[in-house]
Design a protein around this nucleic acid. Structure first.
Lengths: 231, 231
DNA sequence: GACTGTCAAGAGCAGTGCTCTCGTTTGTGT
DNA sequence: ACACAAACGAGAGCACTGCTCTTGACAGTC
């Protein structure tokens, strides 16, 4: 029965999309803080109460936008990596980092919505964890695609951390050891740490403009990840 | 005339402090989003319009809280580093990292206010840049206090980045070269990237709990900074 | 053709940031 | 000692918010 869509269902789906579209427009223009249900309704020629047929609350609308943003940055990263030469892990890593940074700079409010202060209550709904993992999985894929370094850099995780990371590896990348996973996590947090600092203005006055510093750090991280130099 | 304080001035200063205190209480309890001028006034037995004699707008109150938060985490980092053995750079670095992380975990909403999505307009007022630099200066102090590594790790910044960083070095740490400044910047963004990811829930399901991963990363960063092993 | 569930609309509630006005208090210069 | 000006708290009020409830109209189904 999922195949046939009555006129009602079609109208509902279209309106849901339109609401998200207009909300995203306001989000991009003014930020999540100033996103107003009433303004969205007004712009769509509706009345505010009508929106509640489609999103039970403002937070649910924001959650929908969060999911879309995760998907957008994830897809952006995926296609950027896919466009890079398959054999050149370092180029793939560069492509990933630049994709994330460029997307963030192009959609600062959406980035802030996702990687900034969590806005609803204090914990993310379950629906967001899968799309949220997308970029991280791209990063893991890049690491997996690299030839194993003869002498892996860095320390070997031990104790509780080693257990955590081997457990994590068994889920997402069985052939990687705990040390590789740890390096990937460090690269991941470093990447988003830099992008967040740049977008949120913490690099003003130090690494400003941030492009050269970002490039340098990306290369350092590639070294740290054991990615071979580009041919 | 600055020495004598009339009763009026004293009352004003005290009330300003009380307002900030109550606002910080609400901030800690509910987050910046839900901080309400009216609620603060209500709790203080005032009327909302009276608050505007002390803070011209809600954003100005938040800015005051932001400055206080920067000072708090900065002082926390300073005293932690000061308490570590002077000759052990690695221990000082560990102390700094743990101080930042512990403070963030103890004051999540204040941390989010400062290192999360910027809330007012889009740019930080000028008054916040000096207190904001405090933690970074502690980090630089730790790096300066370390004996120079015989073979400094990492790449040498070149081009525009080298210019930026030597300029920056001449302002805050003349004896450091561009490579050392670059490493410090990377460590800085990495530190706050990890803390932000932990606090904002991005490590749930990967490095969770985050303590062991954080410790490991701190040690890796110490290696990267060229800090000698603890005696 | 009657019935049921969905829909947009409108009124309304409690709350917000902020402005303006109104007496009152407080400090200061004459 | 008096008068003037600045600062103050209180209150009313504006425009706005998220959200709820009710009402009447329409579409899809039996």
């Amino acid at each position: 029965m999922a195949a046939i869509r009555t006129a009602r269902q079609r109208a509902r789906e279209e309106l849901t999309l339109e609401i998200k579209e207009e909300a995203r427009r306001q989000l991009a223009a003014e930020g999540a803080q100033r996103l107003s249900l009433r303004a969205v309704a007004r712009e769509l020629g509706m009345v505010s109460s009508a929106l509640y047929r489609y999103f039970p609350s403002r937070d649910d609308l924001l959650t929908a936008l969060i999911i879309d943003a995760y998907e957008a940055v994830g897809e952006c990263a995926e296609s950027a990596v896919a466009a890079a030469p398959r054999a050149d892990s370092r180029a793939r890593w560069r492509a990933l980092c630049n994709a994330v940074r460029d997307w963030a700079r192009a959609h600062p409010h959406e980035y802030a919505l996702v990687y900034g202060t969590p806005v609803p209550g204090y914990q993310a709904p379950q629906d967001t964890v899968e799309p949220a993992a997308r970029v991280a999985l791209v990063l893991v894929a890049v690491v997996r695609g690299a030839p194993p370094a003869e002498r892996p850099p860095g320390r070997i995780p031990a104790g509780e951390l080693a257990e955590q990371l081997t457990g994590l590896a068994s889920q997402i990348a069985p052939e990687l050891d705990a040390a590789a996973i740890a390096r990937a996590l460090i690269a991941w947090t470093q990447l988003f740490g830099m992008v967040s600092f740049e977008l949120f203005g913490h690099l003003v006055g130090s690494a400003d403009p941030s492009g050269p510093f970002f490039e340098h750090a990306v290369e350092e991280l590639a070294d740290y990840l054991g990615l071979p130099p580009s041919p």
